[in-house]
């Protein structure tokens, strides 16, 4: 199969993720959309790795996963804290840099 199709898929996933980040307000959904974008990138990396015939892309994909995991940890912690204080997970409610 032509690896370029994977790139199309990656672009599609990234766009869905980006649109989700821009449109949705719920922090959890936002988070999932960010994950979607990250994974779209991963897909692109792996596809490129295949295309070029070396492993660089696959290595970077692992890095991205690690970063994404770390991000999820910190991010969810923040969201939980915000939810506790505001009883809402909407990002618009947290528009000020103070509680």
């Amino acid at each position: 199969m032509n690896p370029v199709y994977y790139l199309y898929l990656a672009a599609l996933l990234f766009t869905i993720g980006a649109a989700g980040v821009l449109i949705r307000r719920n922090a959890i959904i936002l988070f999932m959309c960010v994950e979607l974008m990250l994974n779209a990138c991963n897909l692109a990396f792996v596809a490129f790795s295949r295309l070029h015939g070396n492993l660089d892309g696959q290595i970077i994909a692992f890095f991205t996963m690690v970063v994404a995991a770390a991000e999820v940890v910190v991010g969810l912690a923040i969201i939980v804290t915000v939810f506790r204080s505001r009883h809402s997970a909407s990002v618009d409610d947290a528009s000020l840099m103070k509680l």
Binding site: L22, I23, V91, D92, S95
Partner: peptide
């Protein structure tokens, strides 16, 4: 600078 994360994201995109 309205504090909405989405607005910043739009400008980034």
């Amino acid at each position: 600078q309205n504090g909405y994360a989405r607005t910043y994201a739009v400008s980034m995109f």
